[in-house]
């Protein structure tokens, strides 16, 4: 490609990019695209396909003496299980704000981290928690029950013993 003499101010000026250098341009763009897609491919790796966390479904045995309104917390689990005349239900004790474990109290639940308070049915009464605590699916009879942390049920759902 020729350059008009008037445009070239000195020999140090860069030569203008020859626009018709189609092959050169497409090579550069192809390389850019290759880099971009390999980057996307590499980013795919850290997003785990299989989660290594322990099973979310577990067996519990309710204590015989569990009074109505009293919480039973299976060891090592973030769940509170209740039994009353209407049946058995389980409420997740993972705070819906930032995931601390809430403590069952006589009025409901309280979160130690930023002071959210929840009523006995899990609804928010104070603090920054954005939604009520989850109710979890329970199955079983008598004292033997299975809690499934992965299945939520509408608040108020109770299973007959």
């Amino acid at each position: 490609m020729t350059v008009k003499a008037r445009e070239q101010k000195s020999r140090l000026d860069p030569e203008p990019m020859p626009r018709r250098d189609f092959l050169g341009l497409s090579a550069i763009w192809a390389m850019g695209a290759a880099l971009f897609f390999s980057l996307l491919g590499m980013l795919r790796l850290p997003k785990a396909a299989v989660l290594s966390s322990p099973s979310k479904k577990f067996r519990i045995t309710l204590p015989k003496a569990l009074a109505a309104g009293e919480a039973y917390v299976p060891p090592g689990r973030a769940v509170a299980v209740f039994r009353d005349d209407a049946g058995v239900h389980a409420i997740s004790t993972t705070c819906t704000h930032l995931g601390c474990i809430v403590k069952p109290t006589t009025e409901g639940f309280e979160c130690p981290c930023h002071g959210s308070l929840f009523a006995a049915d899990g609804s928010v009464t104070r603090g920054p928690a954005p939604r009520s605590l989850d109710w979890l699916k329970v199955q079983g009879s008598g004292d033997a029950w299975i809690v499934d942390e992965e299945s939520r049920v509408p608040p108020g759902t109770r299973e007959q013993a």
């Binding site: 090592g76 689990r77 973030a78 601390c100 130690p112």
Partner: peptide, 9 residues
């Protein structure tokens, strides 16, 4: 201890 949050955390 994943079951008991530090208070205050």
């Amino acid at each position: 201890n994943p079951a008991v949050p530090e208070n205050p955390a």
